Amino acid sequence: MTINEHKQYDVILNARKDRCPMPLLKTKLSLSKMQVGERLCVTTGDSGSLKDIPQYVALVGFSLLSMNEDNDLYTFVIQKN
C-alpha cells in the first residue's frame, strides 16, 4: 500500500496474522470507535473473513466499498454509515 492509498482511509487495521474470530472482532472494535463517514481498511489472512466481514457489514448497515483477494491476503474497505 502506497502513501497515497493510506490517505483514502481513516483507520487501517492489520489483522494479517489473526485467525477467526479475531479479524471480525477487531473490525467491530475499530468501527465502534470511528465516526460516521469514516473509512476502515482491513487486511487479514483468514479466509473465513470473506464470509464474516461482509455479513457483519450488511447486518449493521455499513457500506462495503471494496473487497479484494491477493496471495491469500484479503482486504476490505468499509465506510461507517
Rank of each mutant, 00 (worst) to 15 (best):
V36F: 04
Y74L: 06
L73H: 07
A15D: 03
N81V: 11
R39D: 00
V57M: 01
N14D: 15
L40R: 00
T44S: 14
L31I: 06
Y56I: 07
K28F: 06
V36A: 11
Y56G: 07
I3H: 09
V36N: 05
H6A: 14
A58E: 05
S63C: 11
G45M: 08
E69D: 05
L31C: 08
L64S: 03
F62D: 13
K26N: 12
N68V: 02
I53P: 08
D70R: 12
G61Y: 02
L13Q: 04
F76T: 02
Q79V: 12
R19L: 14
E38P: 06
I12H: 05
T44H: 04
G45Y: 10
Y74E: 03
E5A: 00
K17A: 11
G45T: 10
K7T: 02
I3F: 07
S47H: 12
Y56F: 15
K51M: 14
N14K: 10
G61C: 04
D70G: 08
T75H: 06
D72V: 03
V11L: 04
Y56N: 14
L40C: 15
C20D: 13
G37N: 14
S32W: 02
Y56S: 09
M1P: 09
L65T: 13
S32C: 04
L50K: 14
I53M: 11
G48Y: 08
Y74T: 03
L29R: 10
R19V: 06
C41W: 07
D70I: 13
C41G: 04
P54N: 08
E38G: 12
V77T: 13
L50T: 08
N68C: 11
K80H: 07
H6E: 07
Q55V: 12
L65P: 00
P21V: 09
R16M: 11
L29I: 15
I3C: 01
I3E: 11
A15V: 09
I3Q: 12
T27M: 15
L65R: 03
K28D: 01
V11W: 08
I78F: 00
T43I: 14
E69C: 10
V57F: 07
G37F: 09
T75P: 03
L40K: 00
D10H: 05
I53Q: 06
D52L: 09
S66G: 02
